[in-house]
Design a protein around this nucleic acid. Sequence first.
DNA 1: CAATGTAATGCTCATATGAGCATTATCTTC
DNA 2: GAAGATAATGCTCATATGAGCATTACATTG
Lengths: 314, 314
Amino acid sequence: MATSVSEDTELLTVRVAELYYDEDKTQDQIGALLGITRWKVGRLLARGRERGIVRIEIVHPRARRLGIERELRDKFGLKDAVVVPVAENIRARVAQAAADYLTALRPVPRTLGISWGRTMDDVAHHLPMAWANGVTVVQINGGVSLNKRPGTASTTAAEIARKGRGQAILLPSPAILERIETKRAIVGDRTVAAVLDRAKRSDVFLYSAGVADGTSVLVDTGYLAKDTITELVRRGAVGDVLGRYIDSNGNPVDPGLDDRTVGLDLKDLRRASSSILVVAGEAKHPVARAVVTSQLCSVIVTDEDTATMLLGEE
Amino acid sequence: MATSVSEDTELLTVRVAELYYDEDKTQDQIGALLGITRWKVGRLLARGRERGIVRIEIVHPRARRLGIERELRDKFGLKDAVVVPVAENIRARVAQAAADYLTALRPVPRTLGISWGRTMDDVAHHLPMAWANGVTVVQINGGVSLNKRPGTASTTAAEIARKGRGQAILLPSPAILERIETKRAIVGDRTVAAVLDRAKRSDVFLYSAGVADGTSVLVDTGYLAKDTITELVRRGAVGDVLGRYIDSNGNPVDPGLDDRTVGLDLKDLRRASSSILVVAGEAKHPVARAVVTSQLCSVIVTDEDTATMLLGEE
DNA sequence: CAATGTAATGCTCATATGAGCATTATCTTC
DNA sequence: GAAGATAATGCTCATATGAGCATTACATTG
């Protein structure tokens, strides 16, 4: 015999789809052309979409993956999830999506607690002017550099505040201190304590996570040595949130180091009504999973590969 | 100000498209969700398809490019055109499309004149069993090899005939002869003359074209030397049809060589009611153009790149 | 600022398509 | 080969969407 019935149906499905989507013919017209009923035409089209013979794709820098977003919300009980399709410039795309999300957020935050780093700097760049009309942007993790190098807390917070027609409150403290006594002294200082208090009471938190390797911005800026990172990894660290190194369960791996770290406490992130994690790239997969599964965020903005990984096996 | 009106419309178009195509919501539901009318939703969807934000693609080995096919028919007055989308295995795809076309051809040909070469051999492989119910397959260009090597006239014709439940008639002659007297003697022989006569009276011709360089199957099989090809190119040859080297206007470039070539005359191809050219690949672009523009074929089966080249500037 | 031209919008009515159901066809099991 | 189960089909009626038109909004020109 020539070909199987299913192969004939498949070829018919292709022809029907071509006439409908490429030639703009109605199902009635197609039925008449091919000698089948318009109901059968409709079924063939539906099967073509189901089987992937017909692929309908939204191709745009602002496109998202709504289906995957719903799956993430359902699986992790997230308040919201934003997933950006695979693209060459995925970091920029994720930053743009985070900026879009923040701009569309209702109610508009009055106080926004943000972390500093390269990802947050990208987000700042993608925010439009007047994304808010008066907002207090508070730095929630230590580390201030007076040299206005991009990616530092001051430039990031300043840009977000300026574009939101508001003001920035910096946390005038190193990220990590060498001695716990010094840390206690700094957070006990009236001005630093006031900032930490404002940080804690932010409406919305917007932050990224750091990888547990030599590329960390904390190594870059001299707060930690590579050896220290190696030791933290040995203890189970998968990355850091606000300078605090956590394991896959979302718990600090080195209490001593944690005690010397200045910034919002992770408990406050968990208690927040809106804490938005912005994260992309394969290097951050472990820490992304740790944050999401330990309820350190209520919203995630990420790329499709990270989302797919999160939805994968336990 | 924040963003331009057109940028807002573009983002709205993306959101609307995502809800419609990814989430299967109706235009009414989307309107309610986004606070716009269902008529505006419809217009945004239409604009999304127009602007390429929504891309609907038929992805299947048997898919075609119907719009480009119509353009080719319109531009060159072709009886039919089959265009296969860009793919990794484009030769196989074009061969499959040619086999599909032949199988669907009505009326079913009683006598099919075919050329021999790698492309025709591919087509033979892709034909299904019982594509026809009794067909005489006649070889229309010289060259017979008794060693059943794939791609030779005998194996190709035999396979097409066997799958069409018919018989093959080979042309028992070399493709090109060294002396014109020998050629005259051969085509004057009763048996050879009978085959040529059958060839001329075929219902349908199915053939490919050859490139004018060292990869030609005529060089492979020893009929021509590379030097000869070089000289033919110097005289304006863009490729060969049935062993006859033609220029970009479809005329033989070397009358002497043409006289010593055994096979159907190009005039008979032009006069035929159905002559199907199967051609793919960039190397064959010049000869494809020459055949199409000089009415040497009435049907073309080709790949999208070749079709696009043909539709390009004069 | 008014007049004119162009674009966008909302709507009515017609057309296209889908959901659900009854019937028919096909397949599987005994 | 018959009986039962499953799948496919064609159809009616409801729903979804588009075409064409009148109105409104916006842009341009004088």
